[in-house]
Write a protein that binds this DNA or RNA. Structure first.
Lengths: 220, 220
DNA sequence: ACACGAACTTAACTCTGAGTTAAAAAACTA
DNA sequence: TAGTTTTTTAACTCAGAGTTAAGTTCGTGT
């Protein structure tokens, strides 16, 4: 009967995860339709067809719930970098242009996988308020994941320089700049977005221009 | 005696301005030391040595007060662009590199003139919540000022292309990219900043790298 | 069939902070 | 001195975050 207990525990875990996913889904809808400040926990509870105390059983604060929405993007982003790192190690890149293109492709894929999450990530890093208000474990998960992605990206650029794919320069500065470009562009697009303009197509074309620009600047 | 009234009205205006400045100064201190969310209006009132209702006589909401902090940067930034536009019109730029350098110089000067304001501008554009919560006139002042700066920048780049200083490309995309870089870099620096690391020197060196990079990419 | 326990709901509650109000007090003007 | 404007005081409303406790549901073990 030990096996039986295992199975039951697993199902319970699954149900718990589903509950959490349900809350996150509802939270996403509410947050992105009205913005963080105007969204209330009661509203999210209603959207999730659940009672408010139940939400608080899984998320300690409103901030924590909001922040949890950005983890998917960070993870997807990291895995894209890992993919690129592998290709780099096995010498799959003919020139710097191909490498830079792949970085942008990775970003686009992450964005496609979780466009909302990036928006959260943006506003997250802004309001250092939010960060400090988090529970320790959540803050740790997010900031360590973010740091990991960051380190990964820098290492990637460094390696590409060693392989003669990119012009030599300070890898720290370069990774900051690339990251800043990507971050900044999505933001500028966001702040231009209105109800009646589809910003998505424009985001893509701007990213393409940025890609060309970066190739011209650093690819060898 | 009409003259007398004039003088009095002027003095009153001055006093009003001083009051507003005092509030802004206090607000800046409080907001930047604790973050937007954790700052309370009572606290700001206390810091400004003034009563809460008095603050509300000059600023309709907490958001409006916060947003008002960013106007100085936008204005300084705009005036830097106007300076560059004049130089461009009188053919003062020998090559694209000189032009790009001047853009960055303009940004740095604006930043120096009002470093905090930029930080507000950053977080401002994040939380579209904030924008929508503003009073009509404030929102108008800020967004129209921002739009004006934006248009100015784009026109600048366009003209520089016509003069053969820059490589031909979509000026809209380029101005978005440049703006995104500047915005993004200060943000990335901000989120890296901690109590014990001075981020200022690093910001400057990163901006210098970005400048070089942009020169390599678009200057002719 | 029945009792136990975990997770959930309900409904009422506390508490903080934004924004308001009205009356009293200053400060200034004529 | 009388009148006007601005500021303060102190009490207030209101919304929303987060909590509490008593009761409900339901799967599980005996």
């Amino acid at each position: 009967m030990q096996r039986h207990r295992e199975i039951i525990r697993e199902r319970k875990q699954r149900e718990k995860d589903q509950r959490i996913q349900g809350i996150l889904k509802a939270a996403k809808e509410v947050f992105f339709s009205k913005g963080y400040m105007k969204s209330t926990m009661d509203e999210i509870a209603y959207a999730a067809q659940i009672s408010k105390p139940t939400i608080y059983q899984y998320f300690r604060t409103k901030d924590e719930l909001y922040s949890a929405l950005m983890l998917p993007f960070l993870e997807e982003f990291g895995s894209q970098f890992e993919r690129i790192a592998k290709k780099l190690d096995t010498g799959k890149y003919a020139d710097g242009t191909a490498f830079v293109r792949d970085i942008f492709k990775g970003f686009k894929r992450s964005y496609d996988a979780a466009p909302d999450s990036l928006r959260v990530a943006n506003s997250f890093f802004q309001q250092s308020d939010l960060i400090s208000a988090l529970g320790d474990d959540t803050r740790l998960a997010i900031s360590s994941r973010g740091r990991y992605d960051f380190e990964l990206a820098r290492g990637l650029l460094e390696k590409a320089m060693e392989q003669g794919l990119l012009r030599r320069m300070d890898p720290y500065a370069l990774s900051d700049i690339v990251w800043a470009m990507l971050l900044g562009i999505t933001q500028v697009m966001d702040m231009k977005a209105t109800r009646h303009t589809r910003t998505d197509r424009y985001l893509r074309s701007t990213l393409r221009e940025a890609e060309k620009l970066l190739c011209a600047a650093i690819a060898l």
